[in-house]
Each structure stands twice: as structure tokens, then as C-alpha cells.
């Protein structure tokens, strides 16, 4: 039977235009998406944020390399900046370390110094680090070089005086004899 209009025909036969539903496998796929197989959380996160992870890795590697480079530069700097100072430094460092070794033999009660004073006696104390930093920043500055040498000399004098006093206070031990033999 002829129909009046397309709309009317479609409305009257609406259900006939409907086809079967989706294939049954579609729900299985959806279910998989709802419950993706559980991967290791770290792998999942890396998968999702691989770009961020790569960027962080690059930053970390760069930072480590920069720190290593700076440390290496600092270690080499004194030698490069002033070879003659390096020579003096080696001499004084050996001498100072020998005195410090000898002082460490005495018990704290005999030494009579608190921890802050003992720390100050060490070779690489705050003054030393300050001078070293200044020298790296101003490699050609003769005044700083002279101050560094003066620092070594004063430290050596001080340590000698302490050792003299200790020898007076406490009878000479085996280790002190060794020290004396060395010098």
C-alpha cells in the first residue's frame, strides 16, 4: 500500500529498520578495557608517562654529570691554578697531618680541648675551605695565595706548640718517640 510520506512510513515501520545488536564479542573487549591485565605498577606508570620519565632521567643524568664535572674541576683546580702553591700545599699538608696524628694519640682528658676546638685544629677547617674557594674564584690573586701559605704556617706553629705542652704534661710515650724520630 502506498504511503503518504517518508517520515510517516519510517515512523510506522520503525522497528523494521532496526537490525540485530552488536556481535557478542564486543562486550568481552569492553570488559577487558574495564579490567586491563594488571601490569607492574611501575611499568604501567612508565607506559603512561614515558615522556616525563625520559625527561626526568635526562635531568638526573645531566645533574650527576655536572656535579661530577664540578668536583673534578675543583680537585684539579688548585694544581692548575698554581703549581708552586700545590707543591707548598703538599709539604705543609704532610707536616700538619703528622702533628695531628701525634696529637690524636693523647686522650681527650690530657688534651683538654673541646670538640669545637679539636675540629678547628683539623687541616681542612672552615678557614681553609674559605681560602680554597676564594683562590678558585680568583686564581691569579697573590694575596690569597700568600694567605693560604700563612694559614699553613700558623697551623703548623700552633700544632707544634700544642705538642710541646703535651710532652711537658704527659711523659713521652712510644708513639711520641716515633714522632720525634720522624722529625
Amino acid at each position: 500500500m502506498p504511503e503518504k510520506s517518508l517520515e510517516d512510513f519510517i515512523r510506522q515501520h520503525r522497528s523494521a529498520f532496526e537490525e540485530e545488536g552488536p556481535p557478542p564479542g564486543l562486550w568481552t573487549q569492553l570488559e577487558k578495557e574495564l579490567h586491563p591485565p594488571k601490569k607492574n605498577k611501575v611499568i604501567q606508570m612508565l607506559g603512561r608517562h614515558w615522556l616525563k620519565a625520559a625527561a626526568i632521567l635526562v635531568l638526573v643524568v645531566n645533574s650527576v654529570m655536572i656535579i661530577q664535572f664540578l668536583q673534578m674541576k675543583k680537585a684539579q683546580s688548585l694544581k692548575n691554578i698554581s703549581p708552586e702553591l700545590q707543591e707548598a700545599s703538599m709539604y705543609y699538608t704532610t707536616q700538619i697531618e703528622q702533628r695531628l696524628e701525634a696529637i690524636r694519640v693523647y686522650p681527650a682528658s690530657v688534651l683538654g680541648l673541646d670538640s669545637a676546638a679539636r675540629k678547628e685544629l683539623e687541616l681542612r677547617n672552615d678557614t681553609y675551605q674559605l681560602l680554597e674557594a676564594e683562590l678558585i674564584q680568583n686564581p691569579g690573586n697573590e694575596r690569597i695565595k700568600a694567605a693560604m701559605v700563612r694559614y699553613y704556617q700558623l697551623k703548623l706553629d700552633l700544632l707544634d706548640k700544642i705538642l710541646d705542652e703535651l710532652r711537658t704534661k704527659q711523659p713521652v710515650r712510644q708513639k711520641q718517640s716515633e714522632y720525634e724520630r720522624e722529625i
Binding site: 529498520f17 532496526e18 537490525e19 540485530e20 545488536g21 552488536p22 564486543l26
Partner: peptide, 11 residues
Amino acid sequence: LYNAYSAAMYN
């Protein structure tokens, strides 16, 4: 929910 609506939505 899927069973109730999938056929109509698929169409």
C-alpha cells in the same frame, strides 16, 4: 546496562 542499550545504540 550494556545488554539493555547496546542493540539500540549499535543501530
